[in-house]
């Protein structure tokens, strides 16, 4: 396990930029991935996720900016970086004539020169991990998409990586396979940092502790997942359900400088408010008091709205796309 990272960040990018023939695939990405986190990297197709991953691995060169992995520069010390990293590509490709065992042995030998028995033991362990023991000696050309993905996960871990980079690891798996991948990721959290891109927002919400959302090559948001789900800054919303004569209370609340908008909707004799606030602390402190100044009003429920990741993602990517 590597502990030699500044501020506990395994990946640190600074204005990382990639331009292909005048088109910005990635523009000025600033990203910090904390150690032992499961970091979800989200974005629609063409957002720049795979480009970022390829740059981190030295498969393509940044046009501008820099990135450090374990404090090593990704362009100057790429080989040293790759010694500590396990990588699963979006569409993993291997030598078709090789068997799964030969592929894992070949992968292991990029990292270890011996002893042979320990390398073989590690290969066997990885075959067990992904449930390919019974297909270990068959050529890969006969493997299904799911089996290739499993082999991909095995080869990415063969070197006990300090950082696992997974590009859409569950994209081609059935629900059972997806669940298994997520379980493996959660188990590995103790030993390694996982940086993965995905389209499957349910998976991100389940296992990630930090998320970055990328759109059109730019970073839209980066935060702990709970912070994103709770909303932050201009997107904090409170749901209030009240009964009685609400017009006075509504006017009082709407006048507050920390209230950005208030929408009201009648529902079975009660009124539901959605209050968008700019200062969550002020709202927590004052909103109920302001409503209850009027004794004819009773509050049935009050709470901060929790979003699901899909809402957050669509709203952020949607807003960004309108610009």
């Amino acid at each position: 396990m590597d502990t030699n990272t500044s501020n506990g960040n395994v990946i640190h990018t600074q204005e990382l930029t990639k331009t292909y023939k005048g088109v910005n695939a990635l523009q000025g990405l600033n990203l910090q991935v904390p150690r032992n986190s499961i970091f979800g990297f989200l974005g629609p197709n063409g957002a720049g996720k795979s480009t970022t991953i390829k740059m981190l691995l030295g498969l393509t060169r940044p046009t501008a900016g820099k990135a450090l992995i374990f404090e090593k520069d990704i362009t100057q010390e790429s080989l040293a970086v790759r010694r500590k990293v396990g990588y699963l590509a979006q569409d993993p490709r291997y030598y078709e004539h090789m068997t799964a065992r030969q592929t894992l042995r070949y992968t292991a030998r990029f990292f270890y020169q011996g002893p042979k028995d320990l390398i073989e033991a590690r290969v066997e362990e990885m075959l067990e991990l992904v449930g390919l023991e019974d297909k270990a000696d068959r050529p890969i050309k006969g493997f299904s998409g799911g089996e290739r993905q499993r082999l991909g996960i095995a080869q990415a871990q063969v070197n006990y990586p300090d950082l696992l980079i997974l590009d859409e690891p569950a994209a081609s798996l059935d629900p059972q396979g997806r669940r298994d991948v997520l379980t493996v990721m959660e188990t590995l959290r103790k030993h390694t940092t996982i940086f993965y891109s995905t389209h499957i927002l349910d998976d991100v919400q389940r296992v990630s502790d930090r998320v970055a959302i990328l759109n059109r090559g730019g970073l839209v948001a980066e935060a702990p997942i709970q912070e994103l789900l709770n909303g932050s800054g201009s997107s904090v919303v409170y749901n209030v359900t009240i009964k009685g004569s609400v017009s006075g209370a509504q006017a009082r609340v709407a006048r507050q400088p920390w209230v950005r908008s208030l929408s009201a909707k009648s529902n079975n004799g009660a009124v539901n408010w959605q209050v968008n606030v700019s200062d969550a602390d002020a709202a927590e402190d004052q909103m109920l008091r302001l409503i209850l100044e009027d004794r004819s009003v009773s509050v049935k429920s009050f709470g901060r709205k929790t979003h699901n990741l899909e809402e957050v993602f669509l709203s952020m990517v949607g807003e960004e796309s309108k610009k």
Binding site: L57, G58, L59, L79, A80, R82, R83, V85, Y87, A89, D91, P92, R93, Y94, Y95, T107, F110, F111
Partner: peptide, 14 residues
């Protein structure tokens, strides 16, 4: 074309 070169180059190989 197959992507195996990219795969090999993602390992500590020059």
């Amino acid at each position: 074309q197959l992507g195996t070169a990219a795969w090999a180059m993602s390992k500590p190989a020059s």
